[in-house]
């Protein structure tokens, strides 16, 4: 069993934001928090590309390394989850995450952060699977039902792939071969306008 991974195919994403809506609806994510969002570069210009970004469930997650109270952990399936009971809302995970995945609700009059919230790969958290408590704290646990994250299941162009890393990479590899040009992904050269290779 490989680790659970997301992969967004930038050649297929049409910036419809259905993944964002599906995530918010499925997990009843409150206002002000986006576990997933679509990022577009070169908007309205030639070479426009969009990708859907959320927690990438890193194998060596920087958020786990920096958390002062060790509230974030890796499951056996490689999903990065956290305990809201332990979180102190310090925000270190947000500073360390290259994808901006950890989100904080603004609670209180003085802008205190509250407990961290992020994509759970629709796998809930450290509560009984599919319990009310788990749903209220972390959202739906679709993985316990043998279902993939709804953002990927809802994606109409199948740009967003989710699941076992071996399967996801095989699907993407097949697409690359079928397209017959490059990986369809950007390198540093594209990201930084010609610099690097």
């Amino acid at each position: 069993m490989a680790r659970m991974k997301f992969l967004c195919d930038a050649d297929r994403c049409i910036e419809c934001n259905a993944c964002v809506t599906a995530c918010k609806n499925e997990n009843e994510v409150p206002w002000g928090i986006n576990r997933r969002r679509v990022v577009t570069i070169n908007d309205g210009k030639p070479g426009e590309r969009s990708i859907s970004v959320a927690c990438m469930h890193c194998s060596d997650a920087p958020c786990i390394a920096v958390c002062p109270v060790d509230t974030i952990y890796n499951t056996e399936e490689g999903i990065v989850l956290h305990s809201k009971d332990l979180c102190i809302g310090c925000g270190y995970c947000f500073y360390s995450c290259p994808f901006g995945a950890p989100q904080f609700p603004q609670v209180g009059n003085f802008g205190t952060r509250g407990k961290m919230d992020k994509c759970t790969f629709c796998a809930g958290g450290p509560e009984n699977n599919n319990s009310d408590v788990e749903f209220k704290k972390y959202g739906r646990n679709r993985m316990a039902e043998g279902k993939l994250p709804l953002c990927a299941e809802m994606c109409s162009t199948k740009a967003l792939l989710a699941g076992d890393g071996d399967v996801v990479s095989n699907i993407y590899r097949e697409r690359v071969v079928m397209r017959g040009f490059g990986a369809g992904a950007w390198g540093w050269g594209r990201a930084y306008q010609g610099q690097g290779s």
Binding site: D70, T71, Y73, E76, S83, G125, P126, G146, K147, D164
Partner: peptide, 17 residues
């Protein structure tokens, strides 16, 4: 990690996924 332990996902559910 010293919080509550996570409940494992059953092998059947993983295979289905």
């Amino acid at each position: 990690y010293l919080g509550a332990p996570d409940q494992k996902i059953s092998p059947e559910a993983l295979e289905k996924a």
